[in-house]
Design a binder for these strands. Structure first.
Lengths: 181, 181
DNA sequence: GATTAGTATCTCAGTAGTGAGAGGATTATA
DNA sequence: TATAATCCTCTCACTACTGAGATACTAATC
């Protein structure tokens, strides 16, 4: 076996760890994190399999989807939206351009900036791919009723907002603060 | 700027896409996917920042955590648990071994298999790191009340189970079925 | 105008991780 | 026994990404 894919094992889990069961609120949060990570991974696997049929990586697809739904955008805008590094952004657009799916366009008012946009070919591809892909997503969510999906969305939104706030505080701030001696 | 981190932008989102608003159940599912992915990413960022303080990648930490909580295990068991490839598993244990945090042990009953286990040093490190890490997780989840966290966990579990079932069906099966002519 | 800070992209060296396949060991079947 | 099938790990070539810094431009302040 090479890739892990789904484990068929029954999760024996006979031992309960002292460290985890130590204190209830912590245990609840840890459990939530594990379950969230696992369902996310399972979904990613399903979606990735769908997208790879068209020889696209998830990141490439994310770029194309952003362009498809929001139109031409600055590289930096897409970068923030799909959360890749600046180097990765350049790389992704390069690759899509090489395949004739996207292209760069100059920004008339700011010569530093470049727009990325879908080519005709890229748009045609998205028009044929996207509905299928949406159907796959819908299929992957079928474990939950629509009302449950909406409830889940609301909860995740709250969770995500708080986590994002926290993440924005943390990153290079320590270094920055440290340098202010 | 190099890495994207959190976008401070207000998500203008003036245009509603025809493709997305086309049909309600699909729209619900797509929305859920976006929100799930975003909160997952935000959490990963927070946790990663915490773990990197100790010069560990998330994957290395995952291995150590598995060993810490479940004791010595076959490489294959860990692999299934943390979902990395077989090559990645070897690589991860190598790196932990090089740093003296983990070690390989022969399996007495099966000479193909190797156990991975924490060294004294690795266990000591986990004892000092893990409680902090658990606190960070708990902190990242503070946007939700405990009851909400439990509700969210339940919904995600159902979702994840169905998605995992779907993922297990899909992967190489097409190829396999195709070969049976 | 000159200087400084800020912003947007690109370059490039480096890295974590993948996955096909090999090798060696075990188990099942004939 | 053979021998076939299966299992567990490791090797290795490869790839998608990262992130520090470079480059090129714009904006703000003197």
């Amino acid at each position: 076996m090479n890739s892990p894919k789904r484990a068929a094992s029954k999760e024996p889990r006979p031992v309960k760890s002292a460290a985890i069961t130590a204190d209830l609120p912590t245990a609840t949060a840890l459990k939530l994190w594990v379950v969230l990570a696992r369902s996310h991974d399972a979904l990613v696997e399903v979606l990735k399999a769908d997208i790879e049929r068209h020889d696209l990586t998830l990141a490439e697809f994310a770029v194309m989807e952003a362009l498809y739904h929001k139109g031409p955008q600055l590289l930096g805008e897409i970068q923030k939206r799909i959360l890749v590094s600046s180097g990765g952004m350049t790389f992704l657009v390069d690759r899509l351009a090489k395949r004739g799916l996207a292209e760069r366009r100059a920004c008339p008012s700011d010569r530093r900036a470049r727009y990325a946009a879908l080519t005709k070919k890229g748009e045609k591809l998205m028009r044929s791919i996207f509905p299928e892909h949406a159907a796959v997503i819908q299929g992957a969510m079928m474990g939950l009723k629509q009302s449950e999906q909406r409830e889940l969305t609301a909860l995740l939104k709250t969770l995500g907002k708080e986590a994002a706030r926290l993440a924005a505080e943390t990153p290079a701030c320590k270094a920055a603060l440290a340098e202010q001696e």
